[in-house]
Design a protein around this nucleic acid. Sequence first.
DNA 1: AATATATTTCATTTATTTTTGAAAGTTCAA
DNA 2: TTGAACTTTCAAAAATAAATGAAATATATT
Lengths: 167, 167
Amino acid sequence: MEFSDAKNKFVQTWGALGSQWGINKTMAQIHALLMVSADALSMEDIMEELQISRGNASMNLRALMDWGIVYKEYKAGERREFFSAEKDLDELAVKIAQERSKREIKPALKVLKEVSSTVSDTSQEAKHFTEQTTKLYDFVLKADNMLEKVTEYKDNWLARLVVKIMK
Amino acid sequence: MEFSDAKNKFVQTWGALGSQWGINKTMAQIHALLMVSADALSMEDIMEELQISRGNASMNLRALMDWGIVYKEYKAGERREFFSAEKDLDELAVKIAQERSKREIKPALKVLKEVSSTVSDTSQEAKHFTEQTTKLYDFVLKADNMLEKVTEYKDNWLARLVVKIMK
DNA sequence: AATATATTTCATTTATTTTTGAAAGTTCAA
DNA sequence: TTGAACTTTCAAAAATAAATGAAATATATT
């Protein structure tokens, strides 16, 4: 396969995968592009390669930087900014896990705790509700804690985990 | 909090969480509703409670059944169908992991393998691309294998995992 | 301080996804 | 075998999300 075709295929696939996980397509594509670029790209480069507008590029680059998985770079004698992606995959996984925990899981836990502990109604229905949401709270909390622990390993957590699980 | 308010809050939150993970809101809401319902609900019940159309209910129930996390039930002397959710959380997690692996990760792996192994171009750019996509392939494969292993434990994999990781 | 270059913002447009609802399809009972 | 009860399908409508592009803002250069 031609290099350019392969790159394109990879970027498209990564973009599609992103949407299936609630990440907007362009954001995932920019990330993919930066991941496989040997050196940092300017906004112009990204716009050109993905055929997107300046505003779109700007907003999604900002979002990727907020996630902590894309960095700004400055080149000597260059006025414009360049961007590069976190290329260490362990680090990438950790960052994504941390952000998802902070943005989505933690707030959900808060609600789960609230609804599982404030229903005083004694009907069968209400009892079942409280029981089930309590279980869910415990489960999600445990999963979230696991994510946090995994994150502390930083390097090679996945490999370590695989070893532990396999045995 | 009133039972009905709590239930509503839970259903809404679960729905919002779903969208952030690429699952449509109504599908997540139906699932949430069934999770906390003491007994199976008819399509009519679900339409009523969530204020959605018949078509919407039908399609999302089908999707949930395809995921293997909602079941049809038949009641003696009742013509219409009833639905209930998988309430065992370990089982639920396993099912979701399996489906996501099958639908999204496996196809992505296929593409990663292809693009990482068919670029013959010898430019620096192309070399970097091949190197990076190969790493990504290895990483995703390892993660997917882990998911599979975890799945084999069936019961209490999460608790076990937490114990292993903590120590 | 004026100008040129680069980036961000955001109201509007466009694209995508989800929902509706009515017609077609099933199933069962009389 | 007819028809009532229920479910599914799918074209069209509605809702939501994402992208555009031009004006505003910021930053550097002369």
